[in-house]
């Protein structure tokens, strides 16, 4: 009895020893030299794997930075301190900083647009856009089903009253949402811009008026009010010239006094969307 146990222990022990030796030899023979700096940079990166840098993930980005293919400031998530600490660790230039953020250029929540039909289908913007463009009245506005909010790795997009709204303080400008929006409403803009025209509809003003309370009707009142070059005409609507110097926020909005209320600062936009309003009664068709 005692010998049986002893034999078993001895047997497994010998096998373990043999396998251990094999593993040790193989790991020496087939070892892949890895750069310790990649590990170091990876440790300094946020690890969100958002893909905002254009690489497959943080590990891929770290490799590119170490190889010198990519400056560390390409990571849209890292703060400037994090970027400079990476640069210091590698002894390279951090590169000049240019930060972006996403903005959903539509102000049509359920209070501002009509709900034309009963929508019972998949709660996904791409699917909804394929069957008659979802229930909302504007064919160019936010579908309000939150595909962008689900795609955001940082939780920066909130769906308020069936409208996607970006919280600028959480947005890092990775651009994941830009790709998901089937209506191409989400734009990456300079992070220091404050004022936006919340409308992307390219159709003529009377048609926009029929479907939405807050369209850009292209009246050019904003263009005449402020500094030259802050706004530019884009078909039947006006767009903010983001490459122009940063706008001084609320003053621009006050000066323009937009008749439809689509020219707003981000704070005003958020405040409007959060405000409680009586929901417009459902209408089947116009």
């Amino acid at each position: 009895m005692g010998t049986t146990i002893l034999v078993a222990i001895l047997f497994t022990g010998v096998i373990a020893l043999l396998l251990g030796i094999i593993i040790g030899v193989v790991s020496k023979l087939f070892s892949v030299p890895s750069d310790p700096r990649v590990e170091l940079v990876l440790g300094l990166l946020p690890g969100a794997n958002c893909g905002g840098c254009g690489k497959a993930g943080c590990a891929d980005f770290a490799k590119a930075v170490v190889a010198g293919e990519c400056p560390p400031n390409k990571c849209p998530v890292s703060s400037s301190e994090q970027v400079s600490s990476i640069a210091r660790a590698l002894g390279i230039e951090a590169g000049s900083e240019f930060r972006q953020k996403a903005v959903v250029l539509c102000g049509g929540d359920v209070n501002q647009m009509k709900m034309l039909t009963l929508y019972n289908g998949v709660s996904d913007c791409v699917s909804a856009s394929m069957i008659g463009g979802g229930p909302k009245s504007c064919a160019y506005g936010c579908l309000g089903m939150g595909s962008c909010a689900r795609s955001c790795p940082f939780g920066a997009i909130e769906m308020i009253n069936n409208l996607a709204v970006v919280h600028a303080e959480l947005c890092v400008g990775c651009g994941a949402c830009v790709k998901t929006c089937p209506r191409n409403l989400i734009k990456l803009v300079p992070a220091d811009s404050e004022v936006h025209i919340y409308c992307s509809s390219p159709v003529k003003a009377p048609l926009k008026r029929q479907v939405c309370n807050v369209p850009c009707i292209g009246c050019r009142k904003c263009m005449k009010s402020g500094e030259e070059g802050q706004f530019e005409v884009d078909g039947f609507k006006i767009k903010v010239a983001y490459d122009h110097q940063p706008l001084p926020g609320a003053e621009v909005v006050d000066a323009a006094s937009c008749p439809t209320g689509c020219l707003l600062t981000e704070k005003q936009h958020l405040a409007i969307e959060r405000a409680e309003k009586p929901v417009v009664e459902e209408e089947v068709a116009s």
Binding site: L116, T117, L118, I131, G132, P135, S137, V284, A285, S286
Partner: peptide, 21 residues
């Protein structure tokens, strides 16, 4: 009574409409 859905075609394969026009 107030219709809740307008469909062109049949109920199985028809397409729901937004407009009576």
């Amino acid at each position: 009574s107030e219709p809740r859905k307008l469909i062109l075609g049949g109920p199985m394969m028809g397409f729901a409409q937004k407009s009576y026009n």
